[in-house]
Simulated scan of single mutants.
Amino acid sequence: MGKTAFLFAGQGAQYIGMGKELYDNFPICKQVFEEASSSLDMDLIGLIFNGTKEELNLTENTQPAIVTMSIAAYRAFNQIGITPDVVAGLSLGEYSALTASGVFSLSQVIPLVRKRGRFMQEAVPEGIGKMNAILGLAEDKVREACEEAKALGIVEPANFNCPGQIVIGGEVKAVDEAARIAKEKGAMKTLDLPVSAPFHTSMLKPAADRLKTELEHLEIGEMNIPVMSNVTADYITGSKDVKDLLYRQVMSSVLWEQIIRTMIRDGVTNFVEIGPGKTLSGFVKKIDRSLRILNVEDVASLEAAASALKTEQ
């Protein structure tokens, strides 16, 4: 029997009403939403279920909202007896993965990611930086394009999502130039992303430094489930390494494709995306179509995933 990995959604997957069905049907989910709201001393529940898209899309609101919904979905799934062999999350999702593993409590992680969102939002003034997805170009060619555009400013690979999808970020002129060069090198398409800052680049160091100060004060728990790091694409060896990896994560490339390939190498055949949307499921499918890919974001998907995995146990 193959191993099972839980993958936690990152920023960008949010939508108004996410988790409402779980909240209405599972007392454990209602409890998660209420605890998260109270840890922030704000009506997070109202924002997620009935707020405006514009308000939810503010990074400092998005991050606690996604982690709340993801942990609610995780606890409902866990309650029916499904446990993962390994967990990982894309960028912000790593905080959900660490919470599922026991490193953070819910009342710790929700205020932490709200601050992380604010720090990231404030690190680079609007209009200075941007991100662009390069589609259909090999990693070495994307790196070359960034190198050749560096004369115009900072530009770096930010996310290695899956074969043929690499996101770059940096200063506007340099990113535009790197995207132009990427097209010359054979990229099928380049696409500007609707984000407020060049996440996962060296330009986010001010945010990383502020986050480091917040992390220093936290008393964290032990990992009960193996967690993989975005920074190293390898297993986090213990709780002692968590704070440094999260500090580095803000300004380092997200090695998502490599994380999935490492899991496959280690015998994972079932991938369950936990939280809003199916973005990560799409990435996994592009890496290996033979894998079983499931998701949990509402009652129907939870029941389908539980039924699929229980037949295998």
Rank of each mutant, 00 (worst) to 15 (best):
M1D: 12
A5Q: 06
F6L: 08
G10H: 11
A13N: 04
A13V: 14
A13Y: 05
G19N: 06
Y23R: 10
P27R: 09
I28F: 00
V32R: 03
V32T: 07
F33C: 05
E35A: 13
D41P: 00
G51C: 09
E54V: 07
L56H: 11
N57S: 11
T59W: 02
A65T: 04
M69F: 08
I80N: 10
I82M: 11
P84K: 04
L90P: 05
L92S: 04
G93T: 06
L98Y: 03
S101A: 13
S105P: 03
S107D: 15
S107W: 00
K115A: 08
R116Q: 06
G117N: 10
R118M: 13
M120K: 02
E122N: 15
E126M: 10
I128W: 11
M131C: 11
L135H: 09
E139F: 10
E144K: 14
A145H: 06
E147K: 14
K150S: 15
N159A: 09
E177V: 03
E177T: 06
A179T: 10
A187K: 08
T190Q: 00
L191S: 08
L193T: 08
L193K: 02
L204D: 02
L204A: 05
D209R: 06
R210Y: 06
L215I: 04
H217T: 13
V227Q: 01
S229K: 09
V231S: 00
T232S: 13
D234V: 09
I236V: 15
G238Y: 05
D244N: 14
V250E: 07
S252T: 11
S253M: 15
E257P: 05
Q258M: 12
T262I: 01
M263N: 01
R265Y: 10
G277R: 05
L280T: 07
K286N: 15
K286D: 02
D288M: 09
S290R: 11
A300P: 05
A300Q: 13
A304D: 13
A304V: 06
S307E: 15
A308W: 03
A308H: 13
A308P: 03
K310P: 00
K310Q: 09
Q313W: 13
Q313M: 14
